[in-house]
């Protein structure tokens, strides 16, 4: 019984941890949106900043990955 409660709560926690991915989605969208806005204002400078955009995406996405990791740990390691 107690084990079932722990498992259930762990699964609930895993589901809650996945909400963090929404934050990562917002972050990535923000980075790309701003890149696009800047690129439309000054298309000649856009090509040089594509790599920077991807680095920014990667950093924003890293935090979503942590929430994913927390979810995995709750599901399989707790």
């Amino acid at each position: 019984m107690e084990e079932a409660i722990v498992t259930g709560l762990a699964y609930a926690g895993a589901g809650l941890a996945c909400t963090g991915m929404g934050g990562a989605a917002v972050g990535v969208g923000h980075v790309v949106g701003n890149y696009l806005a800047g690129a439309l204002r000054n298309p000649s400078a856009a090509a040089g900043q594509t790599a920077t955009m991807f680095i920014g995406i990667a950093f924003a996405e890293a935090l979503g990955i942590f929430s994913f990791l927390v979810a995995l740990l709750l599901m399989f390691a707790v």
């Binding site: 990667a58 996405e61 890293a62 990955i65 942590f66 994913f68 990791l69």
Partner: peptide, 16 residues
């Protein structure tokens, strides 16, 4: 934290 995010990003994207 870099190596963790660096490796889990790739594995997580592929797996998901």
């Amino acid at each position: 934290v870099r190596p963790v995010s660096h490796s889990i990003r790739l594995a997580g994207n592929m797996m998901a």
